[in-house]
Design a protein around this nucleic acid. Structure first.
Length: 477
RNA sequence: CGGGGUGUAGCGCAGCUGGCAGCGCACCGCGUUUGGGACGCGGGGGUCGGCGGUUCAAGUCCGCCCACCCCGACCA
């Protein structure tokens, strides 16, 4: 911990973000430009994210595997749009063991190609399908401007890669995984998201269709929190992934891929954080309850500590930390754990010992307003209820904030206004030219065409031509 | 790659017109403290980004180089 004051989100959101990440010890800058070090506290959060997702993947029939970090350059070049989209951000290994390599090896920016190559080898018959594999790993994309978690040269993620017999099945898988991400975001991270389809300009390089969950951050900018791609037969054709159908005819497979990265940590921070620091959603928080003992002398200590230990035992069903540091004052600890976003703090002092009470402070309600005294008896049930309630209130607050900042503009000048501090939801004719013009003039991009939109039609917010779909425009991370 | 800026202790900085390298925070020790960011005393810590030049003397002046940061074009 360094200085005492954190910049407020209003005065400087991005500096607030940087400071929170560093001071909460989520991550630090690496000696290599653009790279980050995920510190134990940040990684613990990632592990909880992994666990929540992995459970969902397994429940839908997926299995985990590991593919190589290095990919032959020729693999990357097999799918035209893929290499065109990714080539500017590739890291390439040209020397190995002191020798110039025959063929350069790409440090994976994503694994469609090498996995496609293997699928071609493994898949022979319709009986082999579907193949439902996920990989947890790291990837490298050579970024120019970087931010901790949000955009780094190397990041950690999971990438699912599936192969199916039919287009319908692949589409169903694509949407199922999008829904999985949305369920995770809402029910584990308390982050409200909008499910939608990406425009042609915004879709993944090589995909037929890309879907994403989009979240609004505390500064109203949009963040793509997870993506799911229907790759059609693009990669199946490029890598010759074929199977014999029941009529003994060779068919190309239909493949999908879907990913969610450590960027999601940034989404959590920017969705829930406040001017005191991090606010972590209870179901993912590495520490759900911190207990701060308070005493002035050894006599008080000997009264307080047994109660603290008893509490620790009663709360063994939760992730609990007892802060027994003697070198800092309780006041310092309060601020410290608030910076780190721990959902609940329990204070145990001599008065509590005498009265059989505890001071319980909920992180989602800042300062003393969120602090109440409760009886020690039945604390486990109270904690369970409070954590539930905090999850709910975080979600409600975030969705309220988001909806207050989504406006349907009546004309283009109004759209320009809106995207300065919010999202604009407007008719769009689907023409990439209009999209590009809007981006150029406002810095707002199309975020997604939401899946659930009422039928009807209107006129394109930019060109006025007939439009059949509404799209979100926003400045994005 | 284009425009702007900065390099002095772990971090943030001061160091004028060249003359023993400093301050705050952090860190270590001792004591007093402890229900919302404690205090006192003592202490450790430096190739002043690098190389070269001017000078009796360079953190300071000059030249070249390097690195990083911010703003633009690209992105999960």
């Amino acid at each position: 911990m360094t200085d005492e004051k954190l910049p407020t989100r209003n005065e400087n959101f991005s500096e607030w973000y940087n400071q929170v990440v560093l001071r909460a010890e989520m991550a630090d800058y690496a000696p290599v430009r653009g790279c980050m070090i995920v510190r134990p506290y940040g990684w613990a959060l990632w592990e909880n994210i992994q666990q929540a997702l992995d459970l969902r993947f397994k429940a839908t029939g997926h299995v985990n595997a590991a593919f190589p970090l290095l990919i032959p350059m020729s693999f990357m070049e097999k799918e035209k749009e893929h290499i065109e989209g990714l080539s500017p951000e590739l890291a390439v290994v040209t020397i190995g063991g002191g020798e110039k390599l025959e063929e350069p090896l790409v440090v994976r920016p994503t694994s469609e190609t090498i996995i496609g190559h293997m699928y071609a080898k493994w898949i022979k018959s319709y009986r082999d399908l579907p193949v439902l594999i996920n990989q947890w790993g790291n990837v490298v994309r050579w970024e120019m401007r970087t931010r901790l978690f949000l955009r780094t040269l190397e990041f950690y993620w999971q990438e699912g890669h599936t192969a199916h017999a039919t287009a319908d099945e692949a589409q169903a898988e694509t949407l199922q995984m999008l829904e999985t991400y949305a369920d995770f975001a809402i029910n584990e991270a308390a982050v409200p998201v909008i499910r939608g389809r990406k425009s042609e300009a915004e879709k993944f390089a090589g995909a037929l269709r890309t879907y994403s969950i989009e979240a609004m951050m505390g500064d109203t900018r949009a963040l793509q929190a997870g993506t799911s791609h229907n790759l059609g037969q693009n990669f199946a054709q490029a890598f010759d992934i074929r199977y014999l159908d029941t009529n003994n005819e060779l068919q190309h497979c239909w493949t999908t891929s879907w990913g969610l990265s450590t960027r999601f940590i940034g989404a959590i921070i920017m969705t829930h954080g406040d001017d005191q620091g991090l606010v972590l959603p209870p179901r993912l928080a590495p520490i759900q309850v911190v207990i701060v003992p308070i005493f002035r002398n050894d006599d008080e200590k000997s009264q307080v500590m047994p109660v603290v230990e008893r509490l620790r035992g009663e709360l063994s069903g939760f992730r609990v930390r007892v802060d027994d540091r003697t070198e800092v004052t309780p006041g310092f600890k309060f601020n410290d754990w608030e910076m780190r976003g721990v959902p609940l703090r329990i204070e145990v002092g001599p008065k509590d010992v005498a009265k059989g009470t505890l001071a319980v402070a909920r992180r989602d309600i800042a300062g003393k307003a969120g602090r109440t005294f409760v009886p020690q008896a039945g604390i486990a049930a109270q904690v369970a209820d409070l954590l539930e309630d905090i999850h709910k209130s975080l979600y409600d607050r975030a969705i309220k904030f988001r909806d207050e900042h989504i406006v349907e503009p009546k004309d283009y000048p109004e759209l320009k206004e809106i995207v300065q501090n919010g999202w604009a939801f407007a008719w769009w004719c689907g023409d990439a030219a209009c999209e590009a013009k809007i981006k150029e003039e406002t810095k707002a991009t199309t975020r997604c065409i939401p899946l659930d939109q009422s039928a009807g039609s209107g006129r394109c917010i930019y060109c006025g031509k007939p439009a059949s779909e509404k799209v979100y425009f926003a400045r994005a991370y």
